[in-house]
Amino acid sequence: MPKVLVAVPGEPVAFANVKESKESIAGLLGGPLECVRLERGLTLYCNGQGNADDLPINPHFSQGLVRGPIVIAREEAAGTVGGIEDSEIPWIMDAYIRTDDFV
């Protein structure tokens, strides 16, 4: 099962192992997927209804305004979810995740 980064407003950033389906990511996000392509083959998944549902702003994501939880993973062929490697975690944290003490 692939390892993904999960950042939920009000909780510490965590890593989780998930099934290789977009449905499993949608379950973590609590709604329909919206995908944003990031660098190095990564994809940010967020709840496509975050604004309409007035979800809390995610303070963890440093590259813009996102409402609700986010997942950072890879999108593999045929729409499956791929994991991130342990060696990529420092770069991902530096590039996309705020490390301030606020949650």
Results as ranks from 00 to 15, higher is better:
87 S>F: 11
69 P>L: 01
12 P>V: 01
9 P>H: 08
10 G>L: 13
53 D>C: 10
54 D>T: 08
82 G>N: 05
3 K>E: 12
15 F>I: 05
100 D>E: 14
71 V>N: 02
85 E>A: 14
28 L>I: 03
48 G>L: 03
22 K>Y: 03
99 T>Y: 07
21 S>P: 00
103 V>H: 12
42 L>F: 09
28 L>D: 08
69 P>G: 12
103 V>C: 13
57 I>L: 14
18 V>E: 08
20 E>Y: 02
2 P>N: 07
6 V>R: 07
83 G>V: 04
18 V>P: 00
10 G>R: 05
79 G>S: 00
88 E>K: 03
47 N>W: 12
48 G>P: 10
80 T>R: 06
91 W>T: 13
84 I>H: 00
102 F>S: 14
67 R>Y: 15
59 P>A: 04
43 T>D: 05
35 C>K: 15
34 E>S: 13
102 F>H: 14
103 V>L: 14
59 P>Q: 01
44 L>G: 08
15 F>N: 09
22 K>W: 04
30 G>H: 02
71 V>Y: 01
66 V>I: 15
48 G>Y: 07
25 I>C: 02
89 I>S: 09
94 D>P: 04
53 D>V: 12
33 L>K: 00
84 I>A: 03
16 A>W: 08
92 I>N: 01
76 E>T: 13
46 C>N: 11
32 P>F: 13
1 M>I: 07
86 D>W: 00
4 V>F: 03
80 T>I: 07
49 Q>D: 11
1 M>V: 08
25 I>M: 00
81 V>K: 01
53 D>K: 14
4 V>K: 00
23 E>Y: 00
55 L>I: 06
29 L>D: 09
45 Y>H: 06
1 M>C: 09
96 Y>H: 11
9 P>W: 01
31 G>V: 06
36 V>W: 15
19 K>P: 01
70 I>V: 09
4 V>N: 04
53 D>H: 12
84 I>T: 02
63 Q>V: 09
91 W>D: 11
25 I>P: 00
89 I>G: 04
30 G>Y: 00
8 V>G: 05
8 V>A: 08
34 E>T: 14
22 K>A: 05
43 T>C: 10
4 V>E: 10
44 L>P: 08
63 Q>M: 13
6 V>F: 05
58 N>E: 04
39 E>K: 13
37 R>M: 14
35 C>T: 13
35 C>Y: 08
79 G>W: 09
42 L>M: 01
97 I>W: 02
41 G>T: 02
54 D>P: 06
23 E>Q: 07
58 N>F: 05
32 P>C: 00
67 R>F: 14
86 D>V: 04
75 E>F: 02
93 M>C: 11
103 V>W: 05
86 D>Y: 03
76 E>S: 05
46 C>Y: 10
74 R>S: 12
33 L>E: 01
99 T>M: 12
99 T>H: 11
